[in-house]
Design a protein around this nucleic acid. Structure first.
Length: 188
DNA sequence: CCAAAGATGTTCT
DNA sequence: GAACATCTTTGGT
């Protein structure tokens, strides 16, 4: 199992979102470790993406998105749910990848269907926003193992839960995975 | 099983 | 004051 370094996150958000599928999201919590395999992600841009928090420039909330890649951006959605992103692209440009769904491996198996459930099960909160996933002592980090996608297919679909730039295929899923937050409509 | 709507409070205009 | 990168419950089929 090898941890992902900063260079992994330096590309454009769609490429990173695609590459994150099958990786492990790990949270160290003292002696215990929580691990989940990422099965659904979404890419968000900056000034070019009307659906992004960063579309209208930096604000106190989304300023992290303009910083260096590999840093967590955690925000509260609808006043209730924490949503975990990792910043992508070079410093100065805004972009990030949202982890929408994952398969929980430890401390016990489960399906984390939706971004709010991912953060709740792993214990990620706003306190983690701004922390560097690629740092040696990171509490939250990504890692690669031998299983990865296990040969599964990947599909790009429109993003979920947004009202602008709806048509961009910037949501990436592991096909037919039971932990997906939504079923993909059959296209015949 | 699927669709609709309420809860909830932070963020930005 | 309106919008919101969501989740749960309720009610209908």
């Amino acid at each position: 199992m090898r941890r992902l370094g900063r260079s992994f996150f330096a590309g454009d958000p769609a490429a990173v979102a695609r590459a994150l599928l099958g990786t492990l999201l790990v949270v160290r919590d003292g002696p215990t470790k929580r691990v989940a395999r990422v099965v659904e992600t979404e890419a968000y841009g900056g000034a070019d993406d009307p659906a992004s928090h960063a579309f209208r420039g930096p604000t106190p909330r989304c300023a992290v998105m303009f910083g260096p890649p590999g840093v967590l951006y955690v925000y509260k959605s609808y006043g209730v749910h924490w949503c975990a992103n990792v910043v992508t692209g070079p410093r100065g440009t805004a972009s990030a990848v949202l982890v929408r769904a994952a398969e929980l491996l430890a401390p016990e198996p489960g399906h984390l269907r939706g971004p709010g459930r991912v953060t709740r099960a792993l214990g990620v909160t706003g306190a983690d926003s701004g922390s560097d996933c690629s740092a040696r002592d990171a509490r939250v980090f990504f890692a690669r193992d031998a299983v990865g996608l296990a040969g599964a297919d990947v599909e790009a679909t429109p993003r979920v839960g947004i009202s602008r730039a709806v048509e961009r295929p910037w949501r990436f899923v592991v096909c037919a995975h039971p932990a997906l937050s939504r079923r993909t409509p059959a296209s015949t």
